[in-house]
């Protein structure tokens, strides 16, 4: 008899616990089922496809801080104006007119963040760009695309990957070549990845994994 009462109390507790959890449902889920992030409405519908695909502009030309800082950042407006003041053919199109409105009013464009990590994670762009673009000599769009998706096919960027820790680790657990053919050599002095010496394979290639220690990213 008591067993049933206990069971009933447990059930009630579980129910109330789950319902109180559901009360927090106003929080947006971190990822959607297909890993696509929410659609972000930007003040100007920036056409990444025109710039990255049609014009073939290097990602790092505008997102220049990605190779020397933690945060890739948003390019300053001078970068837009620097080119667009000389491009008469699109000067009267609605998006460019809007750009110059901001420029003449001396106001920053209030871009919204698309790839937003929680505050307890420290992601570093610089190391990823240095490692994969410069040392491994891979195409920039492939390297950026590993996390940001195929941006050259988008207008306004949308998050394509989950950016969850397990997803980060799926790449950090793989062995990557340290310096590939044509890549930037990194000197003869000792260097470490993942706080470990890189391993040397039987055929002489030097490989290393990404850091997998908690305090590499969480502090």
């Amino acid at each position: 008899m008591y067993r049933f009462i206990r069971f009933a109390i447990l059930l009630m507790g579980l129910l109330s616990a789950s319902s109180s959890f559901a009360a927090d449902a106003h929080l947006e889920p971190l990822t959607t089922a297909d890993d696509l992030g929410p659609v972000v409405e930007q003040p100007i519908e920036f056409p990444h496809n025109r710039h990255a695909k049609d014009m073939g502009i290097n990602c790092i030309y505008c997102h220049t801080y990605s190779r020397r800082g933690n945060v890739a950042g948003i390019p300053p407006m001078q970068k837009c104006i620097g080119c667009h003041q000389n491009i008469e053919s699109v000067r009267e199109t609605p998006r460019i007119k809007k750009l110059f409105e901001y420029w003449d009013a001396k106001k920053a464009i209030p871009w919204k963040k698309v790839h937003d990590l929680p505050d307890f994670v420290r992601f570093n762009h610089e190391r990823h760009i240095k490692r994969f673009v410069f040392q491994q000599n891979r195409p920039v769009q492939e390297v950026c695309g590993a996390c940001h998706g195929d941006v050259k096919e988008m207008t306004v960027a949308r998050r394509q990957k989950s950016l969850a820790m397990g997803w980060c680790m799926s790449c950090h657990e793989k062995e990557h070549v340290v310096v590939a053919q044509g890549g930037m050599p990194i000197g003869t002095a000792a260097y470490w990845y993942a706080m470990k010496k890189p391993a040397v394979k039987a055929d002489g290639t030097v490989v290393a994994k990404g850091p997998n220690d908690c305090s590499s990213c969480h502090y």
């Binding site: 570093n124 610089e126 190391r127 240095k130 990194i186 000197g187 003869t188 002095a189 000792a190 260097y191 470490w192 990845y193």
Partner: peptide, 9 residues
């Protein structure tokens, strides 16, 4: 991070 870019410790 900064010394990893230079390939040293």
């Amino acid at each position: 991070r900064s010394v990893k870019n230079e390939g040293r410790v």
